[in-house]
C-alpha cells in the first residue's frame, strides 16, 4: 500500500476543490504523519489554501498524526473516515483539536456521501 501516493492524490483532490481552497486559505500548517508499523514519516503542508505532501520528517509540525500504515492509507484514500480509528484508539493525534477536526472535515467533503 503506497501511502505517499495516497497522500499526493489527497493533496491533488484538495487543490482541485475550490471550496476547500477557500476554507483553507488562512490555514497554514505542517502536519507530520508517522506510520508506526513501517516507521516511515511523511508530511502534509497547507499554505494559503494549497496542500502539498511528501516523504520525510516534518520539523516543527503543528499537528502530529500516527497510526499503522494501512490505517493512514485508508483515511487519506477515503476508504474509512478518521472518526472510526480515532474513536477506537488506532489513530493518535497530537496538536490542536481544531486542526484535527478540519482534517476530518476535509476528508468528508472530498468523500462524504
Amino acid at each position: 500500500m503506497d501511502l505517499l501516493a495516497a497522500l499526493e492524490t489527497f493533496a491533488e483532490q484538495c487543490n482541485q476543490n475550490q471550496r476547500l481552497r477557500q476554507m483553507n486559505r488562512d490555514w497554514n500548517r505542517l502536519v507530520e504523519l508517522w506510520a508506526t508499523d513501517t516507521d516511515q514519516r511523511y508530511w502534509l503542508k497547507s499554505e494559503a489554501g494549497w496542500i502539498t505532501a511528501g516523504p520525510g520528517d516534518a520539523v516543527d509540525a503543528e499537528l502530529k498524526i500516527s497510526a499503522r500504515n494501512d490505517v493512514l492509507h485508508d483515511i487519506f484514500s477515503g476508504i474509512i473516515t478518521p472518526t472510526e480509528p480515532y474513536n477506537a484508539g488506532d489513530l493518535l493525534v497530537k496538536g490542536r483539536q481544531d486542526d484535527m477536526m478540519r482534517l476530518d472535515i476535509i476528508t468528508l467533503l472530498i468523500w462524504g456521501e
Binding site: Q22, D26, W27, D104, I105, L109, E113
Partner: peptide, 25 residues
C-alpha cells in the same frame, strides 16, 4: 463549531454540507 472561516450562504449548501458532515460528526 470548527473554526473554519467559511460562511455558508445558501440553504442548498447548508443541506449539502449537513449531508456530508453530520453522519460522521
Amino acid at each position: 463549531a470548527s473554526r473554519i472561516n467559511y460562511p455558508i450562504l445558501t440553504r442548498e449548501e447548508l443541506i449539502e454540507l449537513g449531508r456530508k458532515l453530520l453522519p460522521e460528526m
